[in-house]
Design a protein around this nucleic acid. Sequence first.
DNA 1: CACTTGACCTGTCCGC
DNA 2: TGCGGACAGGTCAAGT
Length: 291
Amino acid sequence: MPELPEVETVRRGLSELIIGKIVAKVSTDNQKSFPNSQPDVEAFLLGAKIIAVRRRAKVLMIDLNSGYTLVIHLKMTGQLVYVGPEVRFGAGHPNESLVGGLPDKSTRVEFAFADGSNMYFNDQRKFGWVRLMPSLEVDSLPFMQKVGPEPFDPEFTNEVFAGRLLRRKNTTIKAAILDQSVLAGVGNIYADEGLWAANIHPETRVKDLSFEQTSKLRRELIDVMALSIEKGGSSNRNYVNADGSKGSFTDFAKVFRRDGLACVRHPDQEIEKIRVAGRGTHICPVCQRRP
DNA sequence: CACTTGACCTGTCCGC
DNA sequence: TGCGGACAGGTCAAGT
């Protein structure tokens, strides 16, 4: 679910909602979702104040004034939802059975803040995780060491993109842009959307693309992700913003999950679904000629 | 090293 | 309706 635009939307939402809060209590139903030791939690999380919410690639970082940071990856089905002090759900509460109440069966980690508000890490498939670690060590995580440039960084130029793509020159362009070491943040939705916009077939070998083509792809990837952030991210099933609301980007998608529907550029042509790099892939066979 | 595939989990949807 | 299989936004480990 969450690719860069969704994670950025959550980051912005959380920034408005949880900065300044004091963590009062933490519990988990799944050791894998939150693997930290109790002594560390007590020493560096409980009683600590949230001072910033950051993002790098698809990773969220919640900084605490204890010198520790909560590093969070939502993977496929993770959510981070804030519920204010005026709303109480859960066991024993009169509104416990209300639809949409939290926690629910997918809630893996519950954070209670000192003012009575809560934040829930929900994750149906349990791929995601929350990890407490010293703020200074976040950058040395293996993922952070290898992750490529942020697409919105001015230093992510056409030349930088082309150079990064060289390391994956024998694979397909779709596999290459899904590789987080090439650039940060692109996932299955924005890969398909960007490739369609740039008129590139996802199975094209990287080495067969011109500088002009990769430059157009860079521009389109940036533009489609910017549009998605503007729309609050996608509206797919498991994705919600920090306040539990959905985005609307999916309404603007040109190919993603539109198989069988008409291409907006070629009304007589249906969008097709194929498999590339092990992922469901959506194309217009006219816009994107097979290599 | 570069590339591909399977594994991690739960839930849903589709065809028989 | 029931049941099996394919598939779902991401990343790793292990295979070739």
